[in-house]
Design a protein around this nucleic acid. Structure first.
Lengths: 157, 157
DNA sequence: GGCACGTTGGACAATCTGTCCACTAGAGTC
DNA sequence: GACTCTAGTGGACAGATTGTCCAACGTGCC
């Protein structure tokens, strides 16, 4: 993760369409070097994919909310894993993490509207192991999701 | 957003490396059709980018936490906008949204370790308009971030 | 010195892209 | 029914890019 790696990532993040050849011209290095760097970044797991980024809003789900779930303790019926599988089966669940604090789960969901959000929450709560659920709706995005600045902050070998 | 659009997205999500020509072969349609669909999906904003997906963990930031910030009411010094700019300037802040509930802000941060997390939180709290901050650390990921299932759930014209 | 590793500059065939074209099929309108 | 529009098809073309070799050079390390 030297400076060239950072510039490679920054370039492809800014203009994903550029090919390896064009990138090598922009960066002033040989084409093979850019290819080798990309291969290494992928094999290291720094770059996990090149898939299309999809906008939930453009797909008809403009409402984002975060649910904090409380799971029944000392569960018999699966506990966290069962709940995880249940959440994964709901398309509107975009993300879910277990967190510190009373065995909780933080879940990001989207919905077509505030009304539709109720339907999504009901779907989440259909799992009996969920004891409690508190919801906050995201109103405005102050900082859109990004990782790029981290590359410049260094911190890796 | 018909079935072909869904299949195009699913294919490129599964194998970003395939070119338009190869995709047209896989999908059984003409190359021009795939190109036209992709162009339309991008112009509609459904596909927002093709950039490399970066793993914070592989970059040396394996710890993820969510901060809930409380902002001073009726602020003089900028209020939400000022805090947003402050957060955007911190590389470890990956995401920030204003939410319902007492004028709060939900912030996703990463850190090199639990110890390092303290440094990040201190950086966030250096903004005087922040009154209170509660932190939850993400322990395990039950559902990794995804949007793809939404395309099959339909809901858009 | 000898070795591994990364980079360079070059080469090659095979492939893909961008961009035209003419033609067809279906939907909506008059 | 006739007309127009949009979308898709199949084909073509030159130009650019990719994947994959190669030999050579510098740097750091044993």
């Amino acid at each position: 993760m030297d400076d060239l790696d950072r510039r490679v990532i920054a370039l492809f993040a800014a203009e994903p369409r550029v090919g390896v050849l064009e990138a090598s011209r922009r960066l002033g290095v040989a084409r093979g070097t850019v290819q080798a760097r990309l291969d290494r970044l992928e094999s290291r797991g720094v770059v996990t994919g090149w898939g299309p980024d999809l906008s939930p809003a453009a797909l008809g789900y403009p409402v984002t909310a975060f649910l904090t779930l409380e799971i029944r303790q000392g569960g018999d019926s699966g506990g966290h894993e069962g709940v995880g599988a249940h959440l994964a089966a709901i398309p509107e669940v975009l993300e879910a993490h277990t967190t510190t604090g009373a065995g909780d789960l933080l879940v990001r969901v989207v919905a077509a509207s505030n009304t539709d959000l109720q339907r999504v929450i009901d779907a989440v709560l259909s799992e009996p192991a969920i004891v409690r659920c508190s919801t906050v709706i995201a109103l405005a995005t102050q900082v859109p999701y990004r990782v790029l600045p981290l590359t410049s902050a260094t911190g890796v070998s």
